[in-house]
Design a binder for these strands. Structure first.
Lengths: 163, 163
DNA sequence: AGAAATTAGATTGCGCGCAACTTGAAATTC
DNA sequence: GAATTTCAAGTTGCGCGCAATCTAATTTCT
């Protein structure tokens, strides 16, 4: 410690408590957990020829078909720079169709093809496999999920209130 | 529900409980929380000219200088395909030096430059800002962090036991 | 109605993140 | 001690993820 006395400057207080340690940072826990999920999903999604964000788009369309690109982006926190090429790849794979909304030509409507609808059946076992890999009870995982969602929403609110 | 009777097939059971809903999946909570962290960090890291993974590398070097690339990769769960160009950019920015280990020419040792060491002072306030943005007590965040780390390790163990 | 502002999406550029492969050095094996 | 194997790092290719910019359609304002 550079200043052993009781009156330390603010930066020294931070340093002394080790806040800049990798292991103490929740952001790295989340960052590395996201990568860990990706690695678990990889073999499952490879069998369907999907990437993880593509799978997220299909999850939303399986819940409600015919959403707009804007709506997908709001739910997934992704912008057009990410979604436009991603959706084009899903279209090229024959899983979705993209078409401008007749009433409002600005909107891009995304609808599942027959093949895209059928893929859902093959994804049904995935959640159970993920829960198994996570090695915790579904109840515990649901609790943890809610806490992480609350954290995400708090972070998101902080960013958006900066307008 | 396609089959209202008590004896349902396994896929139907999964479907009925809504496991394929985006909102019910912990993986998406983690995925979106990671992006939310990135957005909060962005303005902080921009002021230092760093990206988030570059910041993670510096965190490790500030803890212990002169690590090998392999060691950095093990701590961050990143491989050479990601780290080699990342470290080259940090070197081009004048924050680190890369040099082969004299005793074992396979190892790439990474050491901080004066500028790289100095940058630590400017990063000291970051953890407090993140805690503030997360809108929860440091104790609660530390608890949540530990649970996420446990989840990550369980997922990681599942992947690595497949050899 | 016409001008200005807003909106949804497309495009470009850059930095990850990872799979697959290559290179060169060290350790093992025989 | 020479051949094989293992290991760390580099390279290539592709798909995000996001900032910045552009285009075209709609809405708002006057």
């Amino acid at each position: 410690m550079p200043e052993p006395g009781p009156k330390r400057s603010l930066p020294d207080a931070c340093e002394a408590e080790g806040h800049l340690m990798l292991a103490s940072q929740i952001c790295f826990a989340v960052y590395s957990a996201a990568h860990a999920f990706n690695r678990v999903y990889k073999p499952l999604l490879d069998s369907l020829g999907l990437t993880y964000p593509q799978y997220l788009v299909l999850l939303l369309l399986w819940e409600e078909d015919g959403r707009t690109m804007k709506a997908l982006g709001q739910r997934l926190y992704l912008d057009s720079g990410t979604l436009t090429p991603l959706l084009k790849r899903l279209e090229a794979a024959g899983l979705i169709r993209r078409a401008r909304d007749a009433a409002d030509e600005r909107l891009m409507r995304v609808t599942l093809t027959e093949a895209g609808q059928d893929l859902r059946q093959r994804a049904l076992p995935f959640p159970a496999e993920i829960v198994c890999a996570a090695g915790q009870s579904p109840e515990k995982l649901a609790e943890l999920r809610d806490e992480i969602v609350a954290l995400r929403d708090a972070l998101h609110a902080t960013v958006s209130e900066r307008e």
